[in-house]
Design a protein around this nucleic acid. Structure first.
Lengths: 146, 146
DNA sequence: TCGATACTGAGACTCGTTCTCAGAGATGGC
DNA sequence: GCCATCTCTGAGAACGAGTCTCAGTATCGA
C-alpha cells in the first residue's frame, strides 16, 4: 500500500490504530479499537482514534461497516471486496466472499439509472453457535431484508 | 394487514405516523417523519414518533433502513422484500426490485454455517441527476462495498 | 534554526435515539 | 355507570456515537 500511504503521515498513534485493526478479526467498533489502542498507547485520545479510523478508511487501509441501524460503525482491516453475515442474536459478523453476479449489478444500474460504484451486502440470521441449541431452520428465505 | 394490526392499538398518533409513512416515497428519517406528523398532529412528541416507528417496524407495517454508517435510520412503508440504491452525493435512495438468486443465498448459508433469514443489499453510486453534470462512469465495478 | 504545517489530547458539543415519569385516556370487570 | 388497571402520551432528561474546537506539540522543508 505504499502508493496510498503517502497521503497520510504514519504517526505512532495511527500505526497503533492500524496495528490493532490488523490484529483484530472480530470487526471491532471504534470504541473497541479505542480501548485496545489505549492498552498499547495509554495517552491516546478518542478523537485521535476516530480521526485515524476515518483517515484509514479514506485512504483505503480499512473498511467501515454499519451492521444494523443504530449500531456503532465497525471497522475491518480486510480491504478486499467482501460481504458479511451478521448474527441476530450475538451480533457476531463473519466475512462472506461471494460477490453478486456482475451481470446483475449491470442490470440494476441500467434499470435504476444509477452509476453504481459499489454495494453493501449483509446477510442476517443466526450463527452456528446461536442456531445450534434452538434448532433453527436453515432454509434461506431471504425475506424482507430491505 | 388485520392479522398484524391486533398487536397494536391504532391511536390517532400512530395512525398519523403510518399515514405519513405511506404518503412518503422518499424514505424519510425519523426526524422528517416527526416534522411531517407535526403538520397533521401538532401536539405530538418526538418520543411518540420514535415509539410508533419502532412499533410499526416490529409489527411489520414498515421497514427500517440504515443507509450508511452514522446516518439516521430511514423508514419505508413498502414492506415487500426489496433493496435500495443510494446516491453518494445527494443521499437519495430508490427502491430496487432485484432479489439475489436464492441459490447463492443457500450456498452462502452452507459455506458460512449461518441460518440465513434475510439480507440487506444497498447499491451505492450516483443517481441520474447527480451523475449527469459530472459525466460519471456508468460501468459497475462493484468494488469494495463491504 | 525557524516558520509553516500537520497532528495531538482534552473535552465540549451535536445529533439521533431511548428512557423516565407523571398525567390522560382506554379497557374490562363488576 | 363506576372504578381499578393498563396502555399510551408528551416533555424533557439522559445516553452513546461521533465531530468540532482549541491550544500545545511534533515534524518538515528551507
Amino acid at each position: 500500500m505504499p502508493s496510498r500511504e503517502q497521503e497520510l503521515r504514519l504517526t505512532p498513534q495511527r500505526a497503533a490504530v492500524l496495528a490493532v485493526l490488523r490484529a483484530a478479526h472480530d470487526h471491532p467498533t471504534a470504541a473497541e479499537v479505542y480501548e485496545r489502542v489505549r492498552a498499547v498507547a495509554p495517552g491516546i485520545g478518542s478523537a485521535t482514534v476516530y480521526r485515524s479510523l476515518g483517515l484509514l478508511v479514506a485512504t483505503g487501509h480499512a473498511l467501515e461497516l454499519n451492521l444494523g441501524a443504530g449500531a456503532a460503525a465497525r471497522y475491518d482491516a480486510n480491504t478486499d471486496r467482501h460481504d458479511h453475515a451478521v448474527c441476530d442474536r450475538c451480533g457476531r459478523a463473519v466475512d462472506i466472499d461471494h460477490p453478486i453476479p456482475s451481470g446483475m449489478v449491470a442490470e440494476i444500474a441500467r434499470d435504476s439509472g444509477f452509476s453504481i460504484t459499489g454495494y453493501d451486502l449483509q446477510f442476517r440470521g443466526l450463527c452456528p453457535e446461536c442456531a445450534a441449541p434452538a434448532g433453527a431452520v436453515t432454509g434461506p428465505s431471504a425475506d424482507n431484508g430491505a
